[in-house]
Design a protein around this nucleic acid. Structure first.
Length: 466
RNA sequence: GGCGCGGUAGCCAAGUGGUAAGGCCAGGGUCUGCAAAACCCUUAUUCGUCGGUUCGAUUCCGACCCGCGCCUCCA
């Protein structure tokens, strides 16, 4: 089965491949940098990362652009309140965002574009839309007239046709329709930043940046445009109107949207006290891998209930995976190879990939891996698992981690080095050998305190970081 | 009201017209000087409710109940 995605445009799962050559032109809506991004934002950003990885697994090259919205009402309000320039203010949160993405092991898009670097392009596009008759001006602001774009509503599947001027529509309703028109360009207000452009002074509306930057870097038609589901309307609907009115071409072939995230079963909000940034979670001792695993383990089209139980569960699941990896690296094996295990490993690989290709069914993909691990653990215990089976088992974990990317622990700063740990482990082994269990237990306790867990196995001692 | 998504074991969560994946928790074991580690086993006659189609439905159809999102620049 080929790679396939649920397309919001058609409300169906469709086979995916790029329109031309082997490169996927992808645009994703990035953050508005008025504050630290929260866990709900990162559900979507992790989704982008998984999307990138499944496309790569399918052999496609990526040309992925993500925007940073660094001018909008909230940013201006906050920057003014803090007496900072727009740039000084947004630089702080832009950098914080990029740091957070790196911590969560999100692959970096090929291009990260800031809105304020593309103001002239936006002005130019608005100028063209004016020439096409899609706009009207009022007090120096420019608005997009939705009634000039017949396809309006095709993404959100809303029917606005009945609201266009007509015999049965009274004056009030008609004005409401006009109220759905949206700002392409906002005239300057006293004390607010503005740019001097060919269409006059002002600043861009929210939607135009995506249309302009997507086109600039990727051309008229994208293969994939993605975002959080709340952006379907009006943001993405308006992008389509602008872009298609501008170019006459289909703006994006596929539209992918991630579902919402709840925290402890409730909508995240500051007043409920369940509003978390990554920093908040790290301060509670949560590891980045836990967050990444939890966000990745629920398929992106299903609303995700983010809970501390879930984080704990994620940590245990990751331990299970790492423990299996540790066994593969440290157990002693008999010569030979068991055919059954090769078959199981091959099946795990096939099922894993098939699940991911099926609209990123991460839950099912995980099941394929864990099923293999259980079988392999049994075989390891019984001795059925031979030296010749190690490579294929490791390959299953490699496939898993090339996508989920959680096996490598995030090492805390100031911890023991591997050398120091090895030294203590050797000392403990010596103590054990001379049956000095008191000293032996002391060392284990000491290491545990410093985040290192020892395991005595029939093949000797092994250790791992907590 | 319109559009969209969802209700599966204590929690998270797959799935199929043919009789319920996986993870966590819990209980029971194995191993071990001990175990706090590791590993194994067990855990839904049942898939929101009520009807219908069918030899057979959790899976298809209808109605209803409940939850969530968008419809006001919120991922």
């Amino acid at each position: 089965m080929p790679l396939r995605f649920y397309n919001t445009l058609t409300l169906q799962v469709e086979p995916f491949s790029p329109a031309s050559d082997n490169t996927v032109k992808m645009y994703t809506c990035g953050p508005t940098v008025y504050d630290f991004a929260h866990i709900g934002n990162f559900r979507t950003f992790v989704f982008y990362d998984l999307l990138r990885r499944v496309l790569s697994l399918n052999g496609f090259r990526l040309n992925h652009v993500m925007n940073i919205t660094d001018v909008d009402d909230k940013i201006i309000r906050n920057a003014v309140a803090q007496g900072k320039s727009l740039k000084d203010y947004t630089d702080i949160y832009t950098q914080a965002f990029l740091d957070d993405c790196a911590t969560l092991r999100l692959q970096r898009p090929e291009t990260i574009a800031r809105a304020t670097d593309h103001i002239d392009g936006m002005a130019k596009a608005i100028h063209t839309l004016e020439a096409h008759g899609n706009t009207y001006s009022s007090d120096g602001s420019v608005y997009f007239r939705i009634s000039t774009f017949p396809g309006y509503g095709k993404l959100s599947h809303n029917d606005f046709s009945g609201m266009v001027a007509g015999a049965r529509v009274d004056v009030d309703t008609y004005e409401k329709n006009d109220a759905r028109d949206f700002a392409l360009w906002k005239s300057p207000k006293p004390g607010e930043p503005f740019w001097d452009t060919e269409i006059g002074p002002g600043r861009p509306g929210w939607h135009i940046e995506c249309s302009v930057m997507a086109r600039e870097f990727l051309g008229d038609t994208l293969d994939i445009h993605a975002g959080g589901i709340d952006l379907v309307f009006p943001h993405h609907e308006n992008e389509i109107a602008q872009s298609e009115a501008l170019t006459g071409q289909i703006f994006s072939r596929f539209w992918l949207h991630s579902e919402f995230l709840l925290v402890e079963g409730q909508k995240m909000s500051k007043s409920l006290g369940n509003f978390y940034t990554l920093r908040d979670l790290f301060a509670k001792g949560i590891a980045p891998e836990q967050i990444r695993y939890l966000l990745a383990s629920v398929p992106y089209r299903k609303s995700l209930n983010f809970t501390f139980d879930g984080l704990k569960s994620a940590a245990t699941a990751i331990d299970r995976l790492r423990n299996f990896q540790l066994r593969l690296n440290t157990d002693k094996f008999q010569e030979g190879s068991a055919e059954r295990l090769e078959t199981l490993a091959a099946r795990a690989q096939t099922d894993f990939r098939a699940s991911l290709d099926d609209d990123l069914n991460t839950a099912e993909a995980l099941a394929a891996v864990f099923e293999f691990i259980r079988e392999a653990n049994i075989a390891l215990d019984s001795g059925e698992f031979k030296a010749g089976n190690v490579a294929s088992a490791k390959a299953v974990l490699d496939s898993f981690d090339s996508f989920f990317d959680v096996l490598k622990p995030t090492v805390a700063e100031g911890g023991l080095s591997d050398m120091e740990i090895e030294k203590l482990v050797a000392e403990r082994t010596a103590a054990k050998k001379s049956r000095d269990f008191k000293r032996s237990d002391e060392i284990r306790a000491e290491l545990l305190e410093k985040g290192v867990i020892l395991e005595d196995t029939k093949d000797g001692v092994r250790w791992k970081r907590k």
